[in-house]
């Protein structure tokens, strides 16, 4: 416990951590300020007009779908009459759409919390993932380079305990900070929605969905922190983590993706970490691959494939867990010179 308290003090005193927190607050303040400046409380007439437009848009979608079905059933001629109608009418089936037009879509300059909360949360999670990775890497990297770890080991010559205390402190701190930041962030935008925009439809489904994204985002932040910590421990320097990240992004996500395209590899997104991060964060992801249907997509062949959140979590856990375990195993036996 003493060790954790001491580590907590060291972590919070790090200039880099303080700088990242300032950047977070700045990004937060700029986003909130621009949102506030660009939004206004809609008048009754604006609201009525928007509702009317949304109703019309939904009706138009229904009409188009019915027309498509009628043409498919042979009741209408096959000419499209200037209107695009897909061969598979389910593509435009309003019931199957992710979302239908709502009044908020027709209220320019009005911030609607229910509509914007999720994208805003994604931005925050992206920042916190970056924060966790960089802070995790620099926290142990700087300590290894400066001799701080050696100093500590002269006091507590238990390597695994010392490293575990550092990792635990890092994860705990990042988690608390991420929780506080996300609560403050969402609360601020909720207030903006109430005072200078629209709250939108904040029902149980909304909060459940937002909570799920938030929870998955926090897991991602913790995994990124552990990953940065583990790579910097293995490489003895903060730069090892940064280099590994840059190398992975360029060599694998860009280079290997290109090579996989050239060699006509199927389901290439399965091999990309970015796909798994997206799938985990969104609760699953569908990817299109025309190679899945040799004769072109048809009724018996689906050109889409899915990465479930479960398999993505497994990939992310194996990667972060494996590298963390390797970092502990190497640190336990390493010569500290």
């Amino acid at each position: 416990m003493n060790l954790v308290r001491a580590e907590l003090e060291r972590l919070s005193a790090r200039r880099f951590v303080q700088l990242m927190v300032v950047l977070l607050v700045l990004a937060f303040a700029v986003t909130a300020a621009t949102t506030l400046a660009g939004s206004h409380k809609p008048s009754v007439s604006e609201l009525n007009s928007a509702r009317q437009q949304a109703t019309e848009a939904r009706q138009s979608m229904e009409a188009t779908f019915r027309e498509c079905l009628a043409r498919q059933g042979g009741a209408l001629p096959t000419e499209d009459g200037g209107m695009y109608l897909p061969a598979d009418c389910s593509e435009i089936d309003p019931v199957l759409q992710d979302r239908l037009p709502i009044a908020a879509d027709f209220l320019p300059g009005v911030f609607t919390f229910a509509e914007q909360a999720q994208p805003l949360l994604y931005f925050l999670i992206a920042f916190l993932v970056l924060f966790g990775f960089l802070v995790g890497a620099s926290y142990i990297g700087a300590d290894l380079t400066s001799g701080g770890v050696v100093n500590l080991l002269l006091w507590r010559p238990r390597r695994v305990t010392v490293l575990a205390a550092k990792l635990g402190t890092l994860l705990g701190t990042v988690l608390v900070l991420a929780l506080l930041a996300s609560v403050a962030y969402l609360a601020t935008f909720w207030v903006i929605g109430q005072a200078a925009g629209l709250p939108g439809r904040l029902d149980g489904d909304f909060w459940r969905s937002l909570g799920a994204v938030h929870g998955r985002g926090l897991v991602l932040v913790l995994l990124a922190s552990a990953l940065g910590f583990a790579i910097a421990t293995l490489g003895r320097h903060t730069s090892a983590a940064l280099g590994a990240f840059a190398a992975y992004a360029v060599v694998w996500e860009l280079g290997a993706r290109l090579v996989l395209e050239i060699v006509d590899a199927r389901k290439s997104d399965l091999f990309m970490l970015s796909s798994h991060i997206g799938a985990w964060l969104n609760g699953g992801a569908r990817f299109y691959d025309e190679r899945l249907c040799a004769g072109g997509p048809g009724l018996n062949c689906d050109s889409f494939y899915t990465i479930t959140w479960g398999s993505s979590l497994l990939v992310l856990l194996v990667l972060a867990g494996g590298l963390t375990a390797a970092a502990f195993a190497v640190f336990r036996r390493r010569d500290l010179i």
């Binding site: 003493n2 060790l3 580590e7 003090e9 100093n151 500590l152 006091w155």
Partner: peptide, 8 residues
């Protein structure tokens, strides 16, 4: 103080 704390 930090070292003292870590070392009890």
């Amino acid at each position: 103080r930090l070292l003292a704390r870590a070392g009890g």
